[in-house]
Design a protein around this nucleic acid. Structure first.
Length: 471
RNA sequence: GGCCCGUUCGUCUAGUGGCCUAGGACACCACCCUCUCAAGGUGGCGGCACGGGUUCGAAUCCCGUACGGGCUGCCA
């Protein structure tokens, strides 16, 4: 076991990777690196319902995507909580033997009934002194000592809890299996965890865990409870209501670097006022002491802005490579055999500023790789609504036919004369008929560059076909 | 209900008693650039939840109120 600080990330498999978990993992990862420590991955799979091998692989893949590499020297694991059940139970028995825990034969229904009769809530320590031993239907409960438990939290400072308000919680179920709180503490203890950095929702559990650490004869680790991520209604992000699966963002063409950068800025800000930062810089600068105390809204718009920024910073080659999955996907806007890499590469500088996600990129230049792009009927009607507009279409077609130098500059000059000949002083206002005839839409990348790459024959063919529909 | 945490522009944040006439980013608006749309540039709108203290001085410290959130399981 290494000597530096030991952090841990302990997700339970649920079939997808939560963005909030991703941020927690990233923060632990940054700390493990900057403090020369270790990041321990532990899969908390003790709930049989949540235990499927492919889900575990999903967690590892997601971590890999955000840069938490399993082959990095700072990475350790994965460990599987379910494989340590014997140790959890042994620790529980130790607590029983030393009097820190006791058995109770009351069922949940019994507890509820007695509370109802007495007008109370929670478990009142009824079996504390009954001297019960293990047996069928008996649960093992922790004997919460009197006093106050003070949790030293790196994010929140000192938080104190009155032990009188903490009920004697269950360690071992009546079937003998360990509860989460027990398993969690025993694992952290045996894995030598020194820093527990996790979401704020675990703060109310912390005094219980701290008491267990102490009862087991060890000083508690350093705690740090970071704020949760919330939706627009300011509720904790939930898988039922909100889009929380990291995989979904990846599939939409959010770049890992952009996601990582954005996640890092939720509840924390890089030094120096510039929020777009390379990972090594953020990793070095991240401090728990600087983390905000209040929940942060996961803003899709801002994520998109970060992603756009990262897309624009890519070289055309990098952009092409990143786009490949969407370029050749089954639902790509054009057939794979019509796609031309050289054209895409040449057009990349004008595609990049127009795509917020990689998934949007193919559609920006789909008309270049489509035999016959669908013409938007409304756009076409508007683009040919006046005689002048139709005139532009006819005369620019003629001007292009006469062109010997098929390049963007020449095409532009030819078009402008055609537009002016039809009474347009601002040629830009007259390009709709040509643009719609060629691309099917009124908006898109620069027209003349597009025509250059489309080629003379195809350009003229589309122009003539479109012109023919006007009669 | 109880316990705990929190509260700076709509959102993410900078700010750790004087540098704050509260800075940046996203969003929004306007203008510029421009072959459309973007991108880019310039400018604008907009905030210290409220009330009391402490202090020469408070967004920063203390108390209270309001509001929000989390937890409250023989789930993890």
């Amino acid at each position: 076991m290494s000597s530096g600080p030991r952090f841990r990330f302990a997700p339970s498999p649920t079939g997808f990777f939560h963005v909030g978990g991703a941020r927690t993992a990233l923060w632990n990862w940054a700390l493990a690196h900057s403090m020369g420590g270790t990041f321990v991955l532990r899969i908390e799979d003790t709930d049989a319902e949540r235990n499927r091998p492919e889900w575990t692989q999903g967690i590892i893949d997601a971590l890999e995507w955000i840069g938490v590499h399993a082959d990095d020297p700072h990475f350790e694991g994965p460990y599987f909580q379910s494989q340590y059940a014997e140790q959890h139970i042994a620790a529980a028995h130790r607590l029983f033997e030393q009097g820190a825990a006791y058995y109770c034969d009351m069922t949940a229904a019994d507890v509820e009934a007695r509370n109802k009769a007495e007008g109370n809530q929670g478990y009142q320590g009824w079996s504390r002194d009954r001297g019960l031993g293990p047996g069928p239907g008996h649960v093992l409960r922790f004997r919460v000592p009197e006093g106050t438990t003070v949790v030293h939290d790196l994010v929140r400072g000192e938080v104190s809890f009155d032990n009188a308000l903490i009920e004697d919680f269950v360690l071992l179920r009546s079937n003998g299996s360990p509860m989460f709180l027990l398993a969690n503490v025993v694992d952290d203890l045996t894995m030598g965890i020194t820093h527990v950095v996790r979401a704020e929702e675990h703060l109310p559990n912390t005094p219980k865990q701290q008491m267990m650490w102490e009862a087991l004869g060890h000083p508690a680790p350093v705690w740090a409870h970071v704020p949760v991520l919330v939706n627009e209604a300011r509720k904790k992000l939930s898988k039922r209501r909100d889009k929380v699966a990291l995989e979904m963002y990846r599939d939409e063409g959010i770049l890992a670097e952009a996601m990582v950068n954005y996640l890092m800025t939720l509840g924390w800000a890089p030094k120096g006022g510039e929020e777009i930062q390379p990972w090594p810089q953020m990793q070095a600068d991240f401090r728990l002491e600087d983390v905000n105390h209040s929940p942060a809204f996961f803003d899709l718009k801002k994520l998109g802005a970060f992603n756009g920024e990262y897309i624009r910073r890519m070289s055309p080659e990098e952009f092409l490579e990143a786009c490949r999955p969407w370029l050749f996907a089954a639902d790509a806007p054009f057939p794979a055999d019509r796609f031309d890499e050289a054209v895409f590469l040449a057009m990349a500088p004008v595609i990049q500023p127009r795509a917020t996600t990689l998934a949007e990129a193919p559609a920006v230049i789909d008309f270049l790789f489509l035999a016959d792009p669908a013409i938007d009927a409304d756009a076409w009607a508007k683009a040919t609504a006046t005689p002048e507009l139709v005139g532009v279409l006819r005369s620019s077609t003629a001007a292009f036919e006469a062109l010997t130098d098929w390049h963007a500059d020449a095409l532009k000059a030819a078009f402008e004369s055609a537009a002016e000949a039809n009474g347009f002083t601002k040629p830009g206002k007259a390009q709709a008929p040509v643009r719609v005839a060629i691309t099917g839409r009124t908006v898109g990348p620069p027209l003349f560059e597009s025509l250059e790459f489309m080629g003379r024959d195809e350009t003229l063919r589309r122009l003539r076909n479109a012109g023919a529909t006007i009669g």
